[in-house]
Design a protein around this nucleic acid. Sequence first.
DNA 1: CGATAAGGAACGGTATCGTTCACTAAGCAC
DNA 2: GTGCTTAGTGAACGATACCGTTCCTTATCG
Lengths: 180, 180
Amino acid sequence: MPDTRRRGDDLVRAIYSSALAELAESSFEELSFEKIALRARTGKAALYRRWSTTADLVLDALTDPAAGFGETRPPRTGSLRGDLMVLLGGFAWILDEPHGRALVQLITQRQRHPALFERVRELVFRPRQELIQELLGKAGTARLAAVGPRLVLVAHIESGPVSEAEVEAIVDEVLLPLVG
Amino acid sequence: MPDTRRRGDDLVRAIYSSALAELAESSFEELSFEKIALRARTGKAALYRRWSTTADLVLDALTDPAAGFGETRPPRTGSLRGDLMVLLGGFAWILDEPHGRALVQLITQRQRHPALFERVRELVFRPRQELIQELLGKAGTARLAAVGPRLVLVAHIESGPVSEAEVEAIVDEVLLPLVG
DNA sequence: CGATAAGGAACGGTATCGTTCACTAAGCAC
DNA sequence: GTGCTTAGTGAACGATACCGTTCCTTATCG
């Protein structure tokens, strides 16, 4: 039975994954090295050797490209409506993924962990907002470009997973009328 | 030194106040009978005599009219813009009050404490949404009426207290164009 | 084979838990 | 007022869980 003990990056990625999964299921306040180590089936020592707080660990986990927040490319479907649907639909989808639910837990941490919150904003909100602002052209102020992602986010917080139909409604009833 | 020991409703209101204050400063997960009792300068026994979980306590605290979530009356300033400003401005103001910050802590509790979240929705979101929908007249769908409060809420979550100018921008750049 | 680091158990320390106790202030009946 | 009943105060309890750290064993890699 070879390869029964993970090392290095292999182990680190497993830890990241466990941390985000744990975060998605509970809350940042309830995160602990103990639970993360248990879920990753490793010892706490391996964690303390690398990080000194759960905030540091989560910060690294978010930054890791493998987490899936990396690139957000412009859709180019041909129509503004199509592009908005792809961008916001993708956002809604991510929010329901494990690592996306971890993100949702972090948005309430602005005051207590500014660095963590800022990282979330950089990884999730800013790239989408910038893309949308480009799509909207000269009509798109920063505030207007933020409306779509923000509405999707609150919809998710209030009612859970945001359906395609809901995204459609946001695009058709709010965003398009505003720029048309 | 008379009246040094509170009883009944007097004490209960002090407990409610302490619970919401404690919640505003930390998070729902970190709430404990111990902290609430300490802040209210009473014994834990007085709390356990009335509630069995912090969720029950907070639920009652929110429901208490003295908490300040009670009435939300239509503004009637004469103009749609004025009415929207009053409603959304008032909402933004509440979110920065102690009991409003307690509310913000609860909006992430939908999955773990549905009853608690539902109460928050009833007390804060629904009344404002209904009033706005009335204001908008026949042009106002439920989804459209929710846009204002939702944008104010996310603005608060992302950047802290929402200024009058920010509310003005939401009204002028988003809401009014949508119904004009 | 030797150096490194993972696995896992154990440590003492701390926090909160829910409960119980004796004490005494407050409210009520008379 | 006096006395009785109710209930808030405040401290203590043992139980439990988890904290962050350290230890020894052993797999992995060069």
